[in-house]
Design a protein around this nucleic acid. Structure first.
Length: 843
RNA sequence: GCGGAAGUGGCGGAACGGUAUACGCACUGGUCUUAGGAACCAGCCCCGAAAGGGUUAAGGGUUCAAAUCCCUUCUUCCGCACCA
């Protein structure tokens, strides 16, 4: 028997798929559509196992739906703008465009080797002028709706390289290249008013039945709706008022201080205080990085000012605090140490009063020492609020505020407006000019505003800023002198509408064609890494919502069903000077790791594979040795798709052997003849049960279980071929069904075996197997006999046999007799055809 | 720090609140073979000669019955707004 040659076969079918245009899609109103989309990749150079996992998974769903009669749209594109291209340009003297296009080319080749059922005619790339032209159109649409505005906001500033740094380029507070201490600098930047949709984005989460609960919960927490009130405090500085936001107005009588954000307008009164300036500079350091912001020691700067308590008229000191954010609420809080842990820690540090104003039971005294009482309860020490429950007290106090015009009920959101400005070259230009008469003009004609290609990366700063002939222009309407906006768009902007573009990727005049989005949208199944659970998905939902009216998008929600796949993790490696190292460059074992040149290597945490940390495994080596089918089979069989995995090659050989076994079985099926007469009557049933189980598993994304069943499937066929008691046509039929099923996972060998067996190359035109006969009900079943919930025996009985009969049968079993000896039976729990639990007086 | 998830043999993992360890990997023994890194057969959580008993990160709780539900602790991963 000739061996299976995966290299020749996979090459052959790649060519065939291309020539026969197997996976091209067109609108077809006679068929039900299915839009299957995986998050498009950033073209970083090579694909890694995380991509393989994502795209194979999506391919299984696309193939499954196609065989089930759906018209499937399964496109692919490139999230092609972004920071790494500029880094590469600086480091390798390669233009970002050349670097990106080279990477796209390479990754496309690699993806094609995987045999994915992608309609490559619809390929889009966000750095393509045709794409970003339409993006500039969308910018204009949103701008004219008043959803885009400018405001001051902080950036990480590298004073040596004169450039804005991304958070990931700031390492221990220093610039990644220059090593300079990073400063905070305020810039006037573009923002998208996503907060205008906070409530809608929150409310419609309830309608997203096809989304994982955990993602909806994360988005809910991210939007962070909280109901409370705004209270005006009058200060002793010229009666200037400070507005605070609180969700616990009922604790107002426990207030002992006011804390304001370091950049709160009130701090203008402190600008000559050198000590305050030092405090502010330190406090702002982590302002754009919430994790270090939260982990910072809570510090305050005591000002010489106070506010008056609205009821007691007591003076409360005003602190500037490093844990109060200007972006949230009104940038100021009142501190109630007894009922907020953060305030308590703060109060103890600065010797502030701790007044308990809530207790668990009415009128009960309470002493607060180390732990704040943060639960609801009943008011004490609170004048007219005393004895009211927390909810009653909240309502009462807000009424009181509103009556006295010193506060109002207010809903606040944690969600901030989305900053879309980036002071970088490799992104979509913003179609805005600033005219010499001071006006800001939106450009709507002669789009796209193209990125200039002749840029210099050797100079410090933003190359667009440094490009005089691009930066200086004239107004197309008036001919006045003008300066272009030199910020480019955040790449999240690019990826917030690409799923709409895929519906009509070649449309020249519009971002997307009406009848195409009518047919294809929403995405029926969206698949991607759980790391995108919040930002990308929220921004995409926002875009769809914001553009819904202008483009008559049927569904305000872009993604009907969402599956978030787990990360493929791998340890990271660094040299002593902090450079990331690829795993395949690391030599040695255990703690003694080094490079080929002898330099020491330190192993870091295991993290999700990412080119920026270099902890990636390139699938190409694996494909070369075992083939794409074996790799696809392996990554799918290894773990449940939603679970994070530690990458390991253990087991890939097993997948390879399975592929070989399919090949051998094909030959056996071809020459199979029934030789014995005592027919196996259960064969059909067993096969049908398997088909049903596999279908269910795929739909539930239990792909690893589906694959376990396919091992059983093939073992069963081989077992029956050996026994020779099943009719030839039954074996052939079941094996053909098997090939159709596995083609969803491993297309190459499935197509090859199908062609060998049937003489036709039409596997992809088949239908998913239907369960041909009714599954016969077994006549007997096993019932488990438990004593006090522990399995003690199994009895085989007729279906639906009665409890009393099963009970007497079980008493005849020696083990049961011994255990029950001397015990009194208190109760019996019986579940028909399943279980009999005998409960006794003692355990 | 906050928010979200996960923890079952040597390994990946299976299991509508109802027979824990399906399926696979690795390993061990055997068969076949010029050969085996192929194929096939058998074994493979722990204690026990067996009968049988025990076991789902640790501890507690709910239940006739818990890997599954609840609470506490530990460990790992993801996100935290300029990586994408």
């Amino acid at each position: 028997m000739e061996n299976y040659n995966h290299v020749a076969t996979e090459n052959k079918w790649q060519k065939k798929f291309k020539e026969k245009k197997t996976f091209l899609t067109t609108k077809d109103n006679s068929k039900k559509k299915f839009y299957c989309l995986e998050m498009f990749p950033y073209p970083s150079g090579n694909i890694h196992m995380g991509h393989v996992r994502n795209y194979t998974l999506g391919d299984v769903i696309a193939n499954f739906k196609r065989l089930n009669g759906f018209n499937v749209l399964h496109p692919m594109g490139w999230d092609a703008f972004g920071l790494p291209a500029e880094n590469a340009a600086i480091q390798n003297k390669l233009h970002p465009k050349d670097w990106t296009l080279k990477n796209i080319d390479q990754m496309k080749k690699q993806l094609k080797k995987l045999g994915l059922s992608i309609d490559w005619d619809r390929e889009i790339s966000t750095c393509d002028e045709n794409y970003y032209k339409q993006q500039q159109v969308l910018f204009g649409v949103l701008f004219k709706k008043g959803l885009i505005y400018k405001k001051e906001s902080y950036v990480n500033w590298d004073p040596i390289d004169n450039t804005v740094l991304a958070n990931e380029q700031v390492i221990d507070g220093k610039g990644w290249r220059s090593g300079a201490i990073v400063e905070k600098k305020k810039l006037n930047q573009w923002f998208l008013k996503i907060t205008q949709f906070s409530d809608q984005l929150l409310e419609s989460l309830n309608n997203l039945e096809g989304w994982p609960e955990k993602v909806k919960l994360m988005q809910k927490n991210w939007i962070g709706k909280s109901e409370g009130c705004e209270i005006i405090f009058i200060s002793d500085f010229n009666n200037v008022s400070i507005k605070i936001f609180t969700t616990r107005p009922d604790t107002i009588f426990g207030a002992s201080f006011i804390a304001i954000a370091p950049d709160h307008p009130f701090t203008e009164n402190l600008k000559d205080d050198q000590k305050f300036q030092t405090f502010k500079k330190e406090a702002l350091k982590n302002i754009s990085n919430e994790s270090s912001f939260q982990q910072n020691e809570k510090l305050g700067f005591k000002t010489k000012f106070s506010v008056f308590h609205p009821f007691t008229k007591k003076k409360l000191p005003i602190f500037v605090a490093n844990f109060v954010l200007m972006d949230y609420g009104s940038g100021a809080i009142f501190g109630c140490p007894a009922h907020d842990q953060r305030d308590l820690d703060f109060a103890k540090k600065y010797n502030l009063e701790i007044i308990p104003v809530v207790t668990s039971e009415k009128s009960k005294e309470i002493n607060i020492i180390d732990k704040a009482f943060t639960e609801d309860g009943y008011a004490i020490n609170s004048e007219f609020l005393n004895n009211l429950s927390t909810i009653e007290a909240k309502n009462k106090i807000i009424e009181e505020f509103e009556k006295n015009k010193i506060g109002t009920r207010k809903i606040s959101y944690r969600l901030k407006d989305w900053g879309i400005s980036r002071q970088r070259y490799w992104g979509c230009p913003i179609p805005i000019i600033y005219r010499e008469d001071g006006k800001t003009i939106l450009l709507e004609k002669n789009l796209p505003i193209k990125l200039p290609l002749d840029v210099d990366f050797n100079k410090a700063g933003n190359p667009l800023e440094n490009h005089p002939s691009w930066k200086h222009t004239t107004c197309p309407e008036t001919g006045m002198k003008a300066i272009r906006e030199t910020d480019t768009l955040d790449t999240f902007f690019d990826s917030s509408w690409y799923f709409l573009r895929f519906c009509s990727p070649h449309e020249q005049n519009l971002p997307f064609a009406q009848d195409e989005i009518n047919y294809w949208m929403p995405v029926d199944q969206y698949i991607g890494g759980v790391e995108h659970a919040i930002l990308h998905l929220l921004y995409s939902r926002f875009f769809t919502l914001a553009l819904q009216d202008d483009y008559k998008i049927k569904s305000a929600e872009p993604f009907k069903n969402l599956f978030t796949q787990g990360m493929v993790c791998h340890p990271t490696y660094k040299t002593n000077d902090g450079k990331w190292i690829f795993p395949n460059q690391v030599l040695g074992e255990g703690k003694n790791l080094f490079l080929a040149n002898g330099e020491k290597v330190i192993q870091g945490d295991s993290q999700a594979m990412s080119k920026s940390k270099k902890n990636v495994v390139d699938p190409e080596e694996i494909i070369k040795i075992y083939g794409s089918d074996a790799m696809r089979w392996f990554i799918l069989s290894d773990s449940p798709p939603d679970r994070d995995i530690q990458w390991s090659e253990n087991g890939i050989q097993g997948s390879f052997k399975y592929i070989q076994k399919i090949w051998r079985t094909s030959e056996l099926v071809k020459s199979y003849k029934q030789e014995k007469n005592d027919t196996n009557n259960n064969y059909d049933d067993e096969i049908n049960i398997l088909i049903e189980q596999i279908s269910t598993c795929i739909q539930k994304f239990h792909i690893n279980v589906a694959i376990a069943k396919l091992y059983t499937f093939l073992n069963k066929i081989n077992e029956q071929i050996e026994l020779k008691i099943v009719k030839s046509e039954k074996i052939l039929e079941s094996y053909k069904n098997y090939l159709i099923i596995i083609s969803v996972f491993i297309p190459f060998i499935a197509n090859e075996c199908w062609e060998k067996l049937t003489g036709k190359d039409n596997l992809s035109a088949q239908n998913w197997p239907k369960i041909s006969t009714l599954i016969k009900k077994q006549e007997t079943c096993n019932v488990v006999i438990q004593i006090n919930g522990k399995k003690r025996a199994i009895v085989n009985v007729m279906n639906d046999e009665e409890e009393s009969q099963i009970f007497s049968k079980s008493l005849a079993i020696n083990n049961i007799k011994v255990i029950l000896d001397g015990k009194t039976i208190k109760n019996k729990i019986f579940v028909k055809n399943k279980i009999l639990n005998i409960v006794t007086n003692e355990n």
